[in-house]
Design a protein around this nucleic acid. Structure first.
Length: 419
RNA sequence: GCUGGGGUAGUGAAGCGGUCAAACACUGCAGACUGUAAAUCUGCCGGCUUCGGCCUUCGUAGGUUCGAAUCCUACCCCCAGCACCA
């Protein structure tokens, strides 16, 4: 299928400045900017990254921008409050980490990494105002949604710095156009206004028509919540923050209403394959086959073949399909890497039988109180068996180990061991 | 700079001297039912607890009071309007 048709079918095209989608079928250079205010991307960033990957696969040249300069200001898009400014050193660190993640996500693919701090650090304020500021109409800026929302009686206010964000991003596009001949910028629909800033700036400065493409924000169909938005439940791409197994489990838990959309957005599977998966899924959705394929594909994409394999492998133990008693040393190695491991003492005696303690140290519970509440509500499982007892017994351990779980979903499991 | 309004738990938002760890809504977590789904219903949602209670929170720092999220003082921050405006 042609790239333009494929993207449209996947629902990845929301707004665009070109009239005919077939413009996409002739490969050029595009750019996508990533925020660097944290040290890892989350699945919220993933949709756009995979779109970038699709363009690359379609022959496009990619320029990926880690926003060293823009993160110093803070993107007001989608935020209702002024952001706290992160210190510069921290942002430098974040950029390094994010670059590593991009590399992993695009392993084997060519792309040009850039950091807008590289050009902004030398930009002088007066020059910027003359070169860029002159090209922006205040009237137009004032009408931007994020500005309107923040001003007025019910608004929380907006600083000049955040207000200028749009110009900064526009300037990025212009620089990249000059340096790398980028003719397309992609991003989430919340970036639409900022992307247009660049398009019109380049039109004014260079007399060239470049383009922007926004993809719809991924939302949960039933709750309407923005995908990957919650702070506590953030799913990170960094395996140190969210292990591949937890990552895999997240995708396994996707509801039926969303699974088709996510297959389209987050996997590289072709249309025929996805149609087939969904047809099968409708016959017997209780098997959760679509979810399984989704989980496997996305985990593979983000963490690689090997990690995905161990995530599915570990899942077998977590679900009890294979008892941990029978786990080989090799598998135990794998399990230890993928789920939190808590050592509570040694077998011969002197071990701590507190279930509450184990829940807390494994971080399945956020505090002792939380752990007690979970126990009371029957949310705790030992080796797959629901329990309310607050002390482990000798017999709970098989070969000195047991699986502790919070809730029904297997992603919140931990391995409890005795020496 | 002036005038007015405001800063309360993850978010929105009540409370305006004691009955406030703080209504309510949303988010979140868990249970039941299911399919590791959705919907629905139920419980929880600052920390610690020998489950009797104890401790720390209502922008910050002081003060008044037997007692303060609630009153006073100073400071910081936000919003609106006015003034100023190269």
């Amino acid at each position: 299928m042609r790239l333009s048709k494929d993207l449209a079918w996947r629902g990845l095209i929301k707004d665009k400045t070109f009239t005919d989608n077939s413009w996409l079928d002739e490969p050029k250079t595009f750019y996508h900017g990533i925020d660097a205010s944290t040290d890892s991307m989350t699945i919220g960033n993933l949709a756009a990254m995979i779109l970038a990957r699709r363009l690359i696969d379609g022959g496009w040249q990619a320029v990926l921008l880690a926003g060293g300069a823009t993160s110093l200001i803070g993107d007001p898009g989608g935020k209702t409050e002024e952001r706290d400014l992160a210190p510069r050193e921290e942002i430098q660190k974040n950029i390094k980490a994010i670059k590593r993640q991009i590399n992993r996500l695009f392993s084997g693919k060519e792309f040009i990494p850039v950091d807008n701090y590289d050009w902004f650090k030398n930009v002088r304020y007066l020059d910027f105002l003359r070169e860029v500021g002159k090209s922006f109409s205040m009237t137009e800026l004032m009408q931007r949604d994020f500005v309107v929302e923040r001003m007025g009686e019910s608004g929380s206010g907006i600083s000049y710095a955040e207000f200028s964000y749009s110009l900064v991003q526009g300037y990025d596009y212009w620089q990249l156009y000059k340096m790398h001949k980028t003719e397309l910028q992609i991003g989430g629909s919340d970036q639409w206004g900022n992307m247009l800033s660049g398009v019109s700036l380049i039109r004014k400065k260079e007399g060239k028509e470049v383009h922007a493409l926004s993809m719809p924000l991924v939302v949960n169909k039933t709750t309407g919540a923005k995908f990957g938005k919650s702070e506590t439940g953030a799913i990170w791409l960094d395996p140190a923050k969210t292990s591949p197994t937890q990552f895999y489990q997240f995708w396994i838990n996707i509801d039926d209403a969303d699974v088709e959309d996510y297959l389209k957005i987050f996997t590289l599977l072709p249309k025929e394959k996805i149609d087939q998966i969904m047809a099968d899924h409708k016959v017997d959705s209780a098997k959760r086959n679509a979810q399984k394929i989704l989980a496997e594909e996305v985990t593979k994409l983000v963490h690689g073949e090997a990690q995905s394999g161990s995530a599915t492998g570990v899942t077998k133990y977590l679900t009890g399909q294979v008892s941990i008693t029978d786990a080989t040393d090799e598998d135990m190695e794998m399990i230890r890497k993928e789920v939190p491991v808590v050592n509570i003492g040694n077998r011969s005696g002197g071990w701590d039988p507190s279930v509450v303690g184990a829940l807390v140290t494994s971080r399945l519970a956020s505090s002792n109180s939380d752990a007690r509440r979970l126990l009371e509500s029957g949310a705790v499982y030992i080796n797959g068996q629901q329990t309310s007892k607050d002390k482990f017994e000798e017999s709970d351990f098989k070969n000195g180990r047991l699986l502790l779980r919070r809730g029904k979903a297997y992603k919140d499991s931990a391995l409890i061991e005795l020496e």
